[in-house]
Computed example of a mutant assay.
Amino acid sequence: MTAGGRRSVIGRIKGTKLKACKRNGFGHCNSFQTILTARLVKQNGQTHILCTFAMHSFVRIFLFLWFGGLIGGEAFAVVCLYLKAFSSLPISGDPVSTIFIPPFMILFGIILVSVGRYLSKDDQGYLTDFICGTLDAHPDKIGEKIRSGI
């Protein structure tokens, strides 16, 4: 996809579906940036573009599993430390060190996602402008018609 002869948006079109992201300075998309997923729908003799903006679904699922696993591991380590300190159950290993590792991994994940999202903070507006400029679409009129159910 090009705008003014410059490939500023990377994407693909398949049938009535479209996926696109803004090209960053390195020539590709980062994992945490906003991706436009759109569908063309014919309604009342007009074509409507239904858009959603989100991180890639694989990244969202991975982050859910990553943070969920870290939080679950941290909870398990706290329970083991409690059992080791206040019960006669033989708990092997050093749960104290296990307690301090997941918080740093969680912090690293939060920083990584925050930086990635910060670098793509203007992508939704950019992609909307790109689609509107390329297709000569009018987002306010489209949004009003979709909201009103026409």
Rank of each mutant, 00 (worst) to 15 (best):
L89V: 11
V41I: 11
G125P: 01
I111L: 09
M55I: 08
I49D: 10
S120V: 01
T52W: 12
V41P: 05
F32R: 01
S120A: 07
T34L: 02
L83T: 06
D122A: 14
V115Y: 06
L50W: 10
M55W: 04
L70V: 04
P102I: 02
S114M: 12
P139Y: 10
F86W: 09
F62A: 14
D123I: 01
I142L: 12
G109T: 03
G69Y: 05
A75F: 07
T52D: 15
D94N: 13
D140K: 11
L70G: 07
T98Y: 14
G125E: 01
N30Y: 03
K141R: 15
I142R: 14
G116K: 00
S92D: 13
G93Q: 09
K121H: 08
E74S: 10
V59W: 03
I106D: 11
V115P: 00
I131V: 15
F130R: 06
M55L: 09
I131C: 06
Q124V: 10
F58L: 09
P90A: 14
F53T: 05
G25I: 01
C80Y: 12
M55D: 09
N44F: 05
V79H: 12
I110T: 10
I110H: 08
F104M: 15
I101G: 06
Q124P: 03
D129E: 13
A75G: 05
Q33L: 03
G25R: 02
I35Q: 11
M55C: 08
S97E: 14
L119I: 02
L107R: 04
L112E: 06
A85I: 09
V78S: 08
V59K: 01
K84N: 06
I111T: 06
F76N: 07
G93F: 11
D129Y: 09
D94W: 08
L50H: 14
A54Q: 13
D136L: 15
P103L: 00
F86V: 05
G25W: 00
F64N: 13
D140A: 14
W66M: 07
L40R: 03
P103N: 00
D136M: 14
G73N: 07
G116R: 01
V96L: 14
G125M: 05
L89C: 08
I61E: 04
C51M: 15
F53Y: 15
I71F: 15
K141Q: 15
V79Y: 11
K121A: 12
F26G: 00
F67E: 07
N30F: 04
S88I: 13
L127W: 00
G68F: 04
T52C: 11
F108K: 03
